[in-house]
Amino acid sequence: MELSASSAFDEVRRVEEEVRKARRHMGTNLLITGLAAGPFWWSQLAAPDWVRNAGYVVWIVGGIVLYAIPRKHGLRGNVAASWYTRGWIAATFLLFFVPMGVGLGLKLAGVESLNWLITVLCLVSGLPLIYAGWRFRSGR
């Protein structure tokens, strides 16, 4: 099939747009996760039991909706393979297991109020994912 210069150029633009769309989608998911991390930490550390339990459910359902269902987005963007895999393992650990562990630890230790620690944890927990999401969306 003969490919003219202008049709070649159009195809390049089309493919670039598809890649950008996938990157934006991934970036948005990372941003949402990063922004939700603070409230999740808060729900695990300082909220009543029913909120904590609801937090588990929302976190699991959100993870499935954002990451497990849209499997077609295989694009990895700017990150290297080892970084990507380790990043997700770290994110899962930091955003899911650590809040539960810290919450349980504080409860077992009988610590009723550590507001400054909880506030700091809530504020910083999502920053890595917010940064990654910004990088994906901005194409860096």
């Binding site: 493919v15 950008r20 990895r76 963007g77 393979a81």
Partner: peptide, 13 residues
């Protein structure tokens, strides 16, 4: 074009 725009992509994408 896809690899130039995305750096890395999987076969399925």
């Amino acid at each position: 074009a896809a690899l130039a725009a995305g750096e890395q992509a999987d076969f399925r994408f």
